[in-house]
């Protein structure tokens, strides 16, 4: 079974479920060093994404990713809306109009997503943002999509954990100075959660994503 629009859409729907399950955890992380809305923002956003996909699923993986992007950008707000939205939009651009994704395209998509987030948010690794999870994930490699995404998810987990001891230079946690130390960045955590969910979908569906 190839990684077509339908499987990408299914993976996104599954990820929306994961976001819902972790909504409170993400709210709590954001409550500690931010404004307590990250989990609710993503829950709301992915809720709209699921509705949009239910209404009509585009017929290419790139089309699905673009739909996700446009829903997140137009419905979420906050920092996460435009940043995740841009990530999905750039990923869509990277995979173009192909019918099925390949490991190379997934890798390109992750790189493009990272590029988009950095272009918009201007954060570097170590600034205690989602970039700390996305950057190592974008460097991950694998023989097939499932392996690649598993590696990316593992790297993102490590990256998210690496934010704990940091002082933040970007985002809302930067207002706290030293008081941000000891808390994980909520956006890094959500990147890791999404990638883990995508990896699970890929593994479950047999071959690719």
């Amino acid at each position: 079974m190839g990684c077509d629009a339908r499987s990408v859409a299914a993976a996104v729907v599954a990820a929306a479920g994961v976001v819902g399950e972790h909504r409170d955890e993400l709210v709590r992380l954001d409550q500690a060093i931010g404004d307590a809305d990250h989990g609710e923002n993503l829950r709301r956003g992915f809720g709209f994404v699921v509705s949009a996909l239910a209404e009509s699923t585009p017929d290419t993986p790139g089309g699905v990713l673009k739909l996700v992007a446009s829903v997140l950008i137009s419905k979420v707000g906050g920092a996460a809306g435009p940043l995740f939205g841009t990530a999905f939009l750039r990923a869509a651009g990277a995979v173009g109009a192909v019918e099925e994704l390949t490991p190379e395209l997934v890798s390109a998509a992750l790189g493009a997503a990272l590029g988009g987030v950095v272009a918009r948010g201007k954060a570097a690794v170590g600034d205690k943002t989602m970039v700390d999870a996305l950057a190592p994930a974008a460097s991950a490699r694998g023989a097939d999509i499932a392996a690649l995404l598993a590696a990316a998810a593992a790297a993102a987990d490590v990256g998210a954990s690496s934010t704990v001891p940091l002082v933040a230079r970007k985002g809302r946690a930067s207002y706290l100075g030293e008081r941000a130390i000891g808390h994980m960045d909520p956006g890094a955590r959500s990147v890791a959660l999404l990638l883990r969910s995508f990896a699970n979908s890929a593994a479950g569906s047999g071959v690719g994503l």
């Binding site: 923002n41 137009s74 906050g78 920092a79 435009p82």
Partner: peptide, 12 residues
Amino acid sequence: PGAVFTSPTPDQ
């Protein structure tokens, strides 16, 4: 007006 403590969307 965005959601509580959440910037509004470009649509708005």
